[in-house]
Simulated scan of single mutants.
Amino acid sequence: MKRIVFVAAIAGVVMVATAAAQPVRDVSAKRHPNLAAAQHLVDQAYKRVVDAQQANEFDLGGHAARAKELLDQANAELKQAAEVSNENHR
């Protein structure tokens, strides 16, 4: 019984931390529709990884956490691409 309570508490903490760490979509869809669409897909993928973690009680060998890190990186790269485009096309 103590183990179930402990696992539930850990899952709750991780869920809160995961929600806070979710990538922010901030590329302008008006100026960069393709980059914004890509950011939307990254956001969807991130949410599916979170769903997989929750369904498997976060026991995915660290691979899901690594996937989320890479999705965060992809999100940042998309933002930088939009910023470069903005600078080059003023």
Score class of each variant (00 low, 15 high):
4 I>W: 12
4 I>H: 12
5 V>S: 11
9 A>L: 11
9 A>N: 07
10 I>W: 11
10 I>H: 03
12 G>H: 02
16 V>D: 00
18 T>G: 02
18 T>A: 08
19 A>N: 12
20 A>M: 10
20 A>C: 03
20 A>Y: 12
20 A>N: 00
21 A>W: 01
22 Q>P: 01
22 Q>I: 06
23 P>F: 03
26 D>P: 01
27 V>T: 00
27 V>W: 09
30 K>A: 14
30 K>P: 00
30 K>R: 13
31 R>Q: 05
33 P>H: 04
34 N>Q: 15
35 L>W: 11
35 L>Q: 07
35 L>G: 05
37 A>E: 15
38 A>C: 13
42 V>K: 07
43 D>G: 13
45 A>W: 00
45 A>R: 05
46 Y>V: 09
47 K>A: 10
47 K>G: 09
48 R>C: 05
48 R>V: 07
48 R>L: 10
48 R>D: 02
51 D>P: 05
51 D>K: 06
52 A>V: 01
52 A>N: 09
54 Q>V: 14
54 Q>N: 08
55 A>N: 12
59 D>L: 13
59 D>A: 15
60 L>A: 14
60 L>G: 11
61 G>S: 02
62 G>F: 04
64 A>L: 05
64 A>G: 09
71 L>T: 03
72 D>L: 06
74 A>P: 00
74 A>K: 00
77 E>F: 08
77 E>G: 13
77 E>V: 04
79 K>R: 14
79 K>N: 07
79 K>F: 12
80 Q>E: 15
85 S>D: 13
85 S>G: 15
85 S>N: 12
85 S>W: 14
